[in-house]
């Protein structure tokens, strides 16, 4: 069994504080972490390896320091890790990112399962996973909250997908792409042994020259979308009207009045 996990290094937004005066974010000194959804993806791949044997390869595209995210994945138990790092890759949107990652995955070779997190917590798009699956011409199973069964002889997998109406049980052929939601597992902490291994690990860095990529399809120039403007969203209008009262009963009555009078509840 060979599972490939695509991860992204993101700023840890749990460390972000709000400047009370200006209402803006203080991001200075925020540490970088593995995108939380991707840690579930790594964990799921490791669990499958523990059950069936095989190998887990982790890959990311990003700046040089993204190798620390890969080392963390190795510390968790991943067997191999690859960093895609090249100035030519910079500024990629989801199309160009998926294209570049898919070329790297082709270079890695045969695999049975590919994992991604549902989305990254910085970009919040959830588009790169489906993009990679389409580039590789494999089936995609997104928003997966449970792997119900796996059969590597029959080359099938059954998963539950978290959709708006509930959980959808889907069967698919292998290889396929699975993007995971938080519910799927509880990611493990790295072990001491794992951390030692990760410190020694040499992480190969692939540049655009190592991949069979068309230069006009990577990085900023390969990206169909353009970011035109970045702004801070306006704060919520108005102030909080505190409902005072002598008792909880009275406060509740006043609030109910208000919500009905303002036609917030019809």
């Amino acid at each position: 069994m060979h599972a490939i996990v695509c991860i992204k290094q993101v700023p840890d937004t749990t460390e972000v504080k709000i400047d009370p005066e200006r209402g803006t974010l203080i991001r200075e000194g925020v540490p970088s972490i593995i995108n939380p959804f991707d840690t579930y993806a790594i964990e799921e791949a490791l669990r499958i390896r523990e059950k069936f044997g095989g190998k887990v390869t982790v890959i990311t595209m990003g700046p040089a320091q993204a190798s620390s995210a890969l080392k963390e994945a190795i510390a968790m138990g991943a067997d191999e890790a690859i960093l895609l790092n090249d100035r030519e890759f910079a500024g990629a949107d989801t199309w160009a990112t998926a294209y570049t990652l898919s070329k790297a995955i082709k270079k890695i070779g045969e695999f049975d399962l590919m994992f991604c997190g549902r989305q990254a917590i910085d970009g919040d798009t959830g588009q790169t996973g489906p993009g990679i699956a389409t580039q590789l011409q494999i089936n995609q199973l997104t928003y997966v909250c449970r792997i119900a069964s796996l059969d590597f002889d029959q080359k099938t997998v059954e998963v539950e997908r978290l959709v708006e109406e509930g959980r959808e049980l889907v069967k698919s052929t292998l290889p396929c792409l699975i993007t995971v939601v938080k519910d799927i597992n509880q990611p493990r902490y790295p072990t001491i042994l794992g951390i030692r291994r990760s410190q020694k690990a040499q992480i190969p860095v692939w540049t655009s020259k190592d991949l069979e990529v068309e230069p006009e399809l990577i990085g900023l120039n390969g990206s169909p979308t353009r970011v035109m403007k970045i702004s801070t969203p306006p704060p919520r209008a108005g102030k909080c009207e505190l409902i005072a009262g002598e008792s909880a009963e009275q406060q509740a009555e006043l609030l109910a009045e208000k919500l009905l009078a303002e036609k917030i509840i019809i």
Binding site: T94, W95, T125, G126, Q127, P130, T134, P224, T225
Partner: peptide, 18 residues
């Protein structure tokens, strides 16, 4: 989101999420 990501990739066009 599942569908749009696949369609935009096939067509090679830009897709903006959410």
């Amino acid at each position: 989101r599942d569908l749009a990501g696949a369609v935009a990739t096939y067509i090679r066009t830009g897709l903006t999420a959410d």
